[in-house]
Amino acid sequence: MGATMATRGPAPMTVGTRLRAVVAFYAVVYRRVWRGSVIGRFLNPLLVVLSIGFGLGSLVDHSSGGVGGHDYLHFVVPAIIATQAMSVALGESTYQVMGYIMWNKMYLAMLATPLSVTDVLAGHLLAVALHLVFASVLFVGVAACLGAFTSWWVILAVPAAVLTGLAFAIPIFGYTARLETDTGFNVLFRFVVTPLMLFSGTFFPVDQLSPFLRPIAWVTPLWHGVELCRDAAYGQVHGADLVHAGALLLFIGLGWVWARWSFTRRLVV
């Protein structure tokens, strides 16, 4: 009797079905806010290119003739593809994740179904990756129309930016799942994100940093992302970029292990 009862019930779901089901939830959530999001994504590159690229750029170009033989506009905008990916990643992996854990307990609702912690985490990260693709394509497209790039290779900046975003999002998912209150985010923003913007070679090359500070850049995902995006935009993809991509993949891989451990500890009690 027990055996017949145990074999009843629907067939197990494939990995694809499970991930699609989770992504479908974020698609519905996104459908509610897409208008505001698209407008923001258009305005953002426009303002960056106008203010930093043209505004600050004309000052820099006048006084020092650009950076390493490039106009400041062409130097800075590719880097901002990477920093934008970072900020999208932060937006998706901090308060959002905390909300799904603690406030409306969406993850617990998902875990009461056949979905596993891995499905819930991987599905959400897949949705974040799609958002990163969308945001990066829009940024590159708009900035390209404004003449911010010199090479078609800039298309490669899109996957580079997605990797950069995930290299932040995945470990931060893990970090957020360990928090009891949102004050932990202040630490993250004040001591990690803000300094990163300065040590990552976004606004000036890292060689300008004192030799003691330079290693900071090497261990941050942002610097690797910035270098990748910049090389792509210059059309000068070379061997070092493999190292940069490898560094981002390392953050993604280790981040995944940490995030999964942290999600399991938090959600399976």
Binding site: R20, F25, V28, N104, M106
Partner: peptide, 20 residues
């Protein structure tokens, strides 16, 4: 643990997908 920002129907549809 409903998603209060979604509609009544969306909550049901989204959840049904979790069962394949």
């Amino acid at each position: 643990n409903l998603d209060e920002e979604l509609t009544v129907e969306e909550n049901l549809r989204v959840y049904g997908r979790y069962f394949g």
